[in-house]
Computed example of a mutant assay.
Amino acid sequence: MKYEIILFDVDDTLFDFSLSEKKALHKAFVEFGLPTGLAEYEDNYKEISKVLWRDLEQGLTTLSELRVERFRRLFLTQELEINADTFSSVYLGYLGKETHLVQGAVKLCENLVSCRLAVITNGFRDVQTSRIGRSPLCNTFEQIIISEEAGFQKPEKGIFDYAFSKLQVTDKAKVLIVGDSLTSDIQGGINYGIDTCWFNPNIKENNIGIKPTYEIRKLPYLINIVLKMES
């Protein structure tokens, strides 16, 4: 077997984050008396959120700051008198209940029972543990490594040190990280010296010079990569 330990990203790798985010945002806006809020503000919110998550990867902000700042900026831009901290708490509460999986996720994990599976994710502990715990993958992972607990986020080496310590593994050649983000998952794996697999279902162009070990369009394609015998 080529790899013994698989580190999975969560959002947009095993879980359909776009759908989960959309549903949680809609419910939060409805609770705050804005039933059309998703349609009106989603694009602006995503632009703001994308910038802040990139800042997080680059160490320019913290997760606790990001939690509220994305909504503070949105409400300021849209001239909405809503408390960003309160709205964030409501949104994250709904998000923790959204468990939509990417097609093929359950079957993939079932076919990798001979491997040690773990999660390594940038995000909020309560949200991620709730989503995984409520999903069909609830008993799948040996460890759930979350940046809020680790004190580091991908692509920082610290979160991988934390993961390797939790998993009690030292042989990097036996570990593969799988994720959808070139700058977070793939760059993080490269920085740490482990093989990487870029999950790219939408066939995005890679024009930033980050070169994954493998690239797949569908999750089941990972099975042959992971289980292939050493030549």
Rank of each mutant, 00 (worst) to 15 (best):
F164I: 02
F15W: 14
Y214L: 10
Y221P: 00
A84I: 07
N206E: 08
T77K: 13
D161L: 06
P136K: 11
A24H: 06
L137E: 10
F87N: 02
D195C: 02
E40I: 05
D126N: 09
L167R: 04
G37Y: 01
S18T: 09
E42H: 11
V169R: 00
E21Q: 11
V175H: 00
L19A: 08
T196L: 05
R131K: 12
G193A: 05
A105S: 15
E4Y: 05
Q153I: 02
G209V: 12
N139D: 15
N224Y: 14
P155W: 09
S64A: 11
N200S: 11
D11P: 08
I82V: 14
V119K: 01
A173I: 01
I48H: 06
P220Y: 08
E148Y: 02
R73C: 09
T170V: 10
A84C: 04
L137R: 04
F29N: 04
T99G: 01
V10T: 02
V90N: 00
Q168M: 05
S135W: 03
E47S: 07
I208N: 15
D161A: 06
V169M: 00
C115H: 11
D161Q: 11
P155V: 03
K22G: 05
P201E: 13
I216N: 08
T121Q: 08
V226I: 15
Q58T: 07
V51F: 05
Q128K: 06
I48Y: 07
P212G: 03
N206R: 09
H26S: 12
L52T: 00
E42T: 00
V102C: 12
F199R: 01
D171N: 15
A173Q: 13
L25N: 00
E81P: 01
D195T: 03
D126E: 15
E156D: 14
V106T: 12
N191Q: 09
E81H: 07
S147T: 01
D55Q: 12
N200Y: 11
R217F: 11
P35M: 09
M1Q: 07
P212L: 07
R125M: 04
N191Y: 07
D16P: 06
P155K: 00
R134G: 07
Q143T: 04
L112F: 12
F8K: 01
D185A: 03
F15I: 02
N206S: 12
L182R: 05
Q168L: 08
D43T: 14
G179V: 05
K23R: 13
I203M: 11
A24F: 04
E149G: 00
E81V: 08
F87A: 06
I159H: 08
A28D: 09
I82W: 09
E57G: 04
N122C: 02
R70S: 05
T86Q: 14
A118M: 13
T61K: 03
D180P: 04
